[in-house]
Design a binder for these strands. Structure first.
Lengths: 134, 134, 134, 134
DNA sequence: GTGGTCTAGACCACC
DNA sequence: GTGGTCTAGACCACG
């Protein structure tokens, strides 16, 4: 379910962070679900357990995971919410990088937007939360 | 016109690369235009000239800049084109990261798309090229 | 195994690039093999580690080497392939320079060809790749 | 007849040296023929006259050109000959670079040889010299 | 212990 | 005056 590319240049622990975020965001792993132990995950990915531990630690700091000593690491039921303004701000650099790349590659806006919508579509059912309109 | 944040963790030369790419993509600097000399740019940014030289060198390797010995560094007239397929592929990771972040932040697709379109809009006049319809 | 001549005028990092390319091309170092660490190589050649790092970095950009953080630098298993057309084009300038020199030195074509074949012969076993006929 | 690429990275004076050598080697300019003056050549190439002067000076040092003050610069009638051994040695690095590149690009020896022979063929009539079998 | 980044400063080739 | 190369040495991120 998870995999890393040691030759990509991107730090292994950060690749893992992105993949866990992606899995949570797209609903591949659900709120409350238990993640593999550090050792299990390290075995699967063939990386140093410290690397996995670091990824879990940072995701816990972000409020996406929760570690219960002796029981394991879990996806939190409801990640902390940010204000509408804060959310938009947090997306800005991602948007700017995407658009910069698109302009350099001369990919027209409509095509970029189509690709974004497609990516949202492929995400399937997004994770549900308690407070959502039922 | 350019600035870097030493405390951001992102390597200085890579911040500069992104900013120059952004400036070229949005037309802030035009094809054929001369960039500040390595020493000038280093002075403005308050970084070591080697750091600027590295950014210029990497952008030259990517075909975005061109340096002429003793004269200076210039934005190329027409950056190398990629195939339609290669371009879409090169955008994919950017799109995936943006959408992952949006899903986690629970920003709805329409709002993301709006922000993307706004960013395209702010880009103003994109750089013109020979082959473009006049 | 590697050596540089500081008095030759050719930049040290480029001499090293040529030597590593030559070693890979002739099979002296095999795909997947680990190269000396930056510091080891710098010690052997009696040059600054930065100089070695630059050579490694450029060869990585060309797709010939691959570095894994904290582990070292390796020869890639299978370097990126170019189209038949692109390959021939990339050889052209080398061929033209060789033939120009030969004409000026009045070395007859047959002798040049013989020397080329001899050089191919000395290369010994070229590196094997997955797709090769077994 | 001559042209340089300021953006290629290769020093302009060396590009010019190669082109004059190539023209002489292939017979495009004949022994005894007068070359354009430094200023004429600089005008054609749109480069600094110093650059042309340097190329002429180095070719004169190699014995390929001869400058007669007030009359101009000429291709010598008969360039100095080297011993059979010296000639082969002088070709060696060219051969090695060509073969290294060919091995990396996986271009088979026969194809390289064919390209070399073709380049010899396109050279047309090589320059004749006094001592040649008549 | 590995490579990556950055600085300071020197020297040089080129135009 | 321009960029290119190299050195020395420090600090850091990563595994």
């Amino acid at each position: 379910m998870f995999r890393v590319q040691p030759e990509s240049g991107e730090p292994l622990y950060r690749q893992l962070i992105r993949q866990i975020e992606h899995a949570v965001a797209t609903g591949l792993v659900e709120p409350g679900e238990k993640l593999p132990t550090v050792r299990e995950m390290a075995g699967e990915l063939v990386v140093n357990p410290n690397t996995v531990a670091r990824a879990y630690r940072e995701l816990e700091a972000r409020g996406l995971l929760s570690t219960e000593r002796g029981r394991g690491t879990f996806v939190v039921d409801r990640p902390p919410e940010l204000s509408r303004e804060a959310r938009r701000e947090k997306l800005r650099s991602h948007v700017e990088r995407l658009v910069t790349e698109a302009l350099l590659l001369r990919v027209p806006p409509d095509e970029v937007v189509a690709q974004v919508r497609r990516e949202f579509g492929e995400a399937g059912t997004p994770p549900r939360h308690d407070g959502d309109a039922a």
